[in-house]
Design a protein around this nucleic acid. Structure first.
Lengths: 225, 225
DNA sequence: TGGTTGCTGTCAAACACATAACAATTCAGG
DNA sequence: CCTGAATTGTTATGTGTTTGACAGCAACCA
């Protein structure tokens, strides 16, 4: 009698590792590895084996005690947990450089997120074909989302328009927004936003670079240049 | 007598917030706001004021007790902490779709990371101008890094080449690598890598979307479709 | 069969981080 | 000059995550 799995009450930190597990496991699967121990898998990801087992423990029962994990069991299990057992059609709103780059990023489809539509307001972009998909007018946004049951949207529009577009997406039924605009979106509780800020990434890198460069004093030659 | 600031012994979580603080403060600066309390700033970022003060406390003395923060003091202080008092010239290696998108991302320069060079192996791309910069042959990589004292590199090459390029970057003196290839780079301890994995982002989003959709059962109509 | 090894699931301790609490400080106004 | 309100710097508390430890199971081998 399986009790309802609390499969959603999981720490963020664990959630962020699931894709890494899946990626590595798919790699193992591709080269024909059949089973893998928590130690092997953890070492290849540079984390502790206990952490990996602890992560898996949230979902329970990937292996029988005493036996290593079966790659062919784990891959579909993780896909199911992440929610990509079935491909998740995804729309990209904003066909500027970044939007185009993402639309061209073939891995998206491989990972389970086929691009169902690309949208922009710019008439010059509308009709442009990207990997077989035309850039569409924003008028088609809501119908396409509804018709194809799209739940995830990638937002690559300028900050000034981001909230406006986000509102439209939410009304059309989008549940998850992958937001590349450097701007906090206000959305209902029933919608998830993940902000991807390049500025945060490169600045935290810069912080650490500064620390390294200053730390290894004596080689700060290029600093005084 | 200022003791040597332990300015580098700071939690990652705090480091990641520094760019957000800076961003918001620059915005305030732009509209002429002169001072701001920890509460105001924190609320606009949807965090607790105590956390903000705690973060600032690592670096000490941004304000006198009893007085709110001065925007014009805080902005340069944060810039100095993050390491962008002086612009940090940055190279982009890999002029594919993503590399081009980043090269076109004008914010990079505004944020303090002017693009010093764009590189690719593909002869068809070499010479292509992006925002006034030609895509350069990889032969020019090391000389340019050395000549301009570049310390930060953005890596947007295919996974298969990523380690190879990373090795070259490290030998040429790069200290921080912003890695967009879905691959773990091996680098010396004196080099920082920040991995930006789109797959992780969209998959953790998908996880939460699945939780929301399943949670609000009764509306799972589109699931059984 | 019995012992040994390697493995997972699970719990407990250690650690890191976020939040709350509060003393100390500044300024405004009577 | 004194009081009160607003603010920060700093310490204490609480929460969440990581790490370590170990019992129990499965396979292998003598």
């Amino acid at each position: 009698m399986k009790r309802t799995r609390r499969a959603c009450d999981v720490p963020d930190a664990t959630i962020h590792r699931l894709p890494l597990y899946l990626e590595k496991l798919k790699l193992l699967q591709a080269i024909g590895v059949e089973d893998v121990s928590s130690r092997q898998l953890a070492e290849s990801l540079d984390i502790k084996a206990s952490q990996l087992r602890h992560d898996f423990h949230y979902f329970g029962g990937f292996s029988r005690p005493g036996r290593p994990y079966q790659v062919d069991t784990l891959v579909p299990a993780l896909e199911q947990i992440i929610g990509i057992s079935e491909p998740q059609p995804t729309v990209i709103v904003g066909a500027g450089h970044l939007g185009q780059a993402l639309a061209n990023y073939s891995n998206l489809e491989v990972q389970g997120f086929p691009v169902a539509g690309i949208f922009d307001v710019n008439p010059k972009l509308i009709g442009l074909e990207i990997r077989g998909q035309p850039v569409r007018d924003m008028d088609e946004l809501e119908p396409l989302i509804r018709d194809k049951g799209v739940r995830i949207a990638i937002l690559t529009v300028p900050s000034a328009n981001a909230q406006n577009v986000a509102d439209r997406l939410v009304r059309a039924g989008i549940v998850g927004i992958f937001n590349f605009a450097p701007m906090d979106l206000k959305v209902p509780e029933t919608v998830v936003v993940r902000n991807e800020r390049l500025a945060v990434g490169i600045m935290s890198l810069s912080f650490k670079v500064k620390c390294i460069v200053q730390g290894s004093s004596g080689r700060t030659r290029s600093l005084d240049d």
